[in-house]
Design a protein around this nucleic acid. Structure first.
Length: 254
DNA sequence: ATGGCTTGAGTGTCAAGA
């Protein structure tokens, strides 16, 4: 089983890239973030023609998450229960016996800002919720744009980014709190080359200079981590015309 | 350099992203 995540930064603009990537990689589940549309603008028909069912938790202009699957997804949930949030950032469902949670975690804007406080509260609510979800669904994967670079290895210039948004210690502690639930960072289950990232700034030739961060992740519960055979970040779509600023991340489960 | 791109909103330019 192949599961993947990709922040597409507008599904309307990126649909051709998504369709090409699905055809080339044939994942069983693909989590999308930043669809930036309501259901009425969502390309259900084009995805169905490509062999994918779609679940969508969208809104106008900002945020929006979707779960694309080849087989039927059941027990669908949107948003974090008991966390009052108008922003559409979570969709979850069970696919082929695996609980897939797709998240678009808040960016946080700037350390110390209101959005930063919201980000930390959001992660605390997510962690609280997942604690219970893991008892109900031992085979659980949390995929998405975490907006956190967990370690200095995940940052092209750790000195410049030290204590900055995406890299601050409270954000990294929030990431570790998820690991403490018994989840494993699929990418780090394997030997990886150095300087592998999942996001590059559009400006200042960020991609060409490989000035990136690894902020898109797949976390796996213990049974899934034990069955994980590979985890890769696919830079190919970032090289296309009008790319998303994020690359897809994919894990292969036995 | 609170700059530098990109998107969606919606027509002039701004919020938001990371």
């Amino acid at each position: 089983m192949k599961i993947a995540t990709w922040n597409v930064n507008s599904l309307k603009v990126r649909l051709p890239h998504v369709l090409d990537w699905l055809a080339a990689n044939q994942p069983d589940a693909l989590c999308l973030q930043e669809t930036k549309t309501e259901d009425k603008g969502f390309p259900f028909d084009e995805l169905a023609a490509a062999g994918y069912r779609a679940l969508h938790n969208g809104q106008k202009t900002y945020n929006g998450v979707a779960l694309l699957t080849r087989s039927e997804a059941v027990d669908v949930h949107v948003d974090i229960p008991a966390f009052d949030d108008p922003q559409k950032r979570v969709i979850a469902a069970t696919v082929d016996g695996v609980r897939i949670v797709c998240g678009y975690m808040p960016n946080g804007s700037e350390v110390g800002s209101d959005k930063y406080a919201y980000k930390l509260k959001w992660f605390a609510a997510l962690t609280d919720w997942l604690k219970g979800e893991l008892t109900r669904h031992p085979k659980l994967a949390l995929l998405g744009d975490y907006n956190i670079a967990p370690d200095d290895r995940d940052v092209h210039d750790p000195v410049a980014w030290k204590d900055k948004i995406l890299c601050s210690e409270p954000e990294r502690a929030a990431f570790r709190a998820l690991l403490d639930l018994g989840l494993a960072d699929a990418f780090r289950l394997f030997e990886q080359p150095e300087k592998i990232y999942s996001w590059w700034d559009y400006r200042q030739m960020g991609f060409r200079l490989n000035r990136g961060l690894r902020i898109d992740h797949i976390l796996l519960s213990k049974p899934l981590a034990e069955s994980c055979r590979a985890c890769i970040i696919d830079k190919a779509p970032r090289k296309l015309e009008r790319p998303s600023d994020h690359a897809p991340v994919m894990a292969e489960l036995a």
